[in-house]
Amino acid sequence: MVLDCINPAGDPRISHCNASLNGKNYHYLLAAPPRGYRATIFLIHGWPDISLGWRYQIPPLLQAGYRVVCPDIMGFGGTDAPPVSPPPSNEGIEYYSFKRAAEDIKELARQLGTEQIILGGHDWGGAVVYKVALYHPSLVTHLFSICTPYTAPRSTYIPLQTMIKILPNFTYQLQLASGAVESHVKTKAQIKQFLNGMYGGTGPNGEKAFDVRKGVFFENLGVLRKTPLLGEEELEVYAEEFSRNGMSGGVCWYRNREVNFQDELQLTKKTIDIPVLFVQATKDEALPPAMSEGMEEYVPNMTRKSVATSHWALWEAPEQVNGMIKEWLEKVDQPKSSL
């Protein structure tokens, strides 16, 4: 049986929409059941991804009666990618902060006429949804994160150079924050090669595109065979979307640690008390299982699940992930009809 999936080249179940959120243009996918919906779910993607990263999850959520909203977050796809000055000034980096993302998600919910939403996230999107729940607790009724564990706001700033001594699996972030991606990946053809590698394409002799302790192997991109996780048409759409603004906006998310720290000083004593589903990808090298130890201290109403995949769990095991989300929602979400 073929798994239902949103066709990225065009699908009647989704609308491509735009909204001005706090002065910046956002593109988002909107899908709604034809006869009203029980609640609205926002799905937030990560790097290097776009709203279509949720293409396997949208159909079953629609079928379950949810209105689904999938924004391209700041710097990605059809959403604005404000420029940021080079270090040390980093002027403009606040556009890529968790606080800004939380404000923009709240504003989009307001424009869509809903005072409360369910949030789902993956990768950076997983980090975002936790922070939205902290900044705007009355907005979020339920939350699920695929792969991304919760990291509580700290009262002391830890630079990335220090953090990687504790978490060497974050070493790649030094390269992403350095400007190397933008300097090596510029044309659409290069973007397509890059994305193919990041999504698991490998070479004939085992060459790979990425290692969490080193970063991107740009010299290998040209020899990689096609990733099994996306069809050719899907990969072409992804390359086209990333070509809109290039790679610079997306990697700005790796340059904003200090801004996020300063913003979150007001949040250090808060917990997330709403129902939370955390799905751990057991083979995720960037976000390994050990990073989720102790989450219950800060997320007391949490359900843990796991799936034996790499970081791209949404695509590698969509039936399993969808089943976990469906089962959890059936337990924690009481239906309320809206029109």
Rank of each mutant, 00 (worst) to 15 (best):
Ala209Met: 06
Val181Glu: 06
Gly200Phe: 11
Met198Pro: 00
Pro168Asn: 03
Ser178Tyr: 11
Leu176His: 15
Phe194Lys: 01
Gly197Ile: 00
Ser183Gln: 05
Tyr199Arg: 05
Met198Phe: 14
Lys186Asp: 00
Lys192Asn: 05
Ile164Tyr: 13
Val181His: 06
Phe170Asp: 07
Gly197Ala: 10
Ile166Pro: 01
Tyr199Cys: 01
Thr187Phe: 09
Ala209Pro: 02
Gln161Asn: 08
Gln161Ala: 04
Asn196Thr: 10
Thr202Ser: 13
Gln161Cys: 05
Glu207Asp: 08
Gly179Lys: 08
Gln173Ala: 10
Val185Ala: 03
Pro204Leu: 13
Ala189Lys: 04
Leu160Pro: 02
Phe210Gly: 01
Gly200Asn: 11
Ala189Ile: 05
Lys192Cys: 01
Asn196Met: 11
Asp211Tyr: 10
Ala189Asp: 02
Asp211Trp: 08
His184Ala: 05
Lys188Pro: 06
Ile191Phe: 07
Tyr199Gly: 01
Tyr199Met: 05
Phe194Asn: 00
Ile164Met: 03
Val181Ser: 11
Ile166Tyr: 13
Thr171Leu: 07
Asn196Cys: 05
Asn169Gly: 03
Lys192Ala: 01
Met198Ser: 11
Gln173Arg: 14
Ala209Trp: 11
Lys188Asp: 02
Val185Ile: 14
Thr202Ala: 11
Gly203Met: 04
Met198Gln: 15
Lys208Met: 05
Tyr199Leu: 00
Lys188Tyr: 05
Leu195Gln: 06
Thr171Ile: 03
Asn196Pro: 13
Pro168Thr: 01
Asn196Ser: 05
Leu160Val: 07
Gln175Thr: 15
Ala177Tyr: 15
Leu174His: 08
Lys165Cys: 10
Asp211Ile: 05
Thr202Gln: 09
Lys192His: 00
Tyr172Cys: 00
Leu167Ala: 14
Gly179Ile: 12
Asp211Met: 05
Ala180Lys: 02
Pro168Tyr: 13
Thr187Ala: 02
Gly200Leu: 08
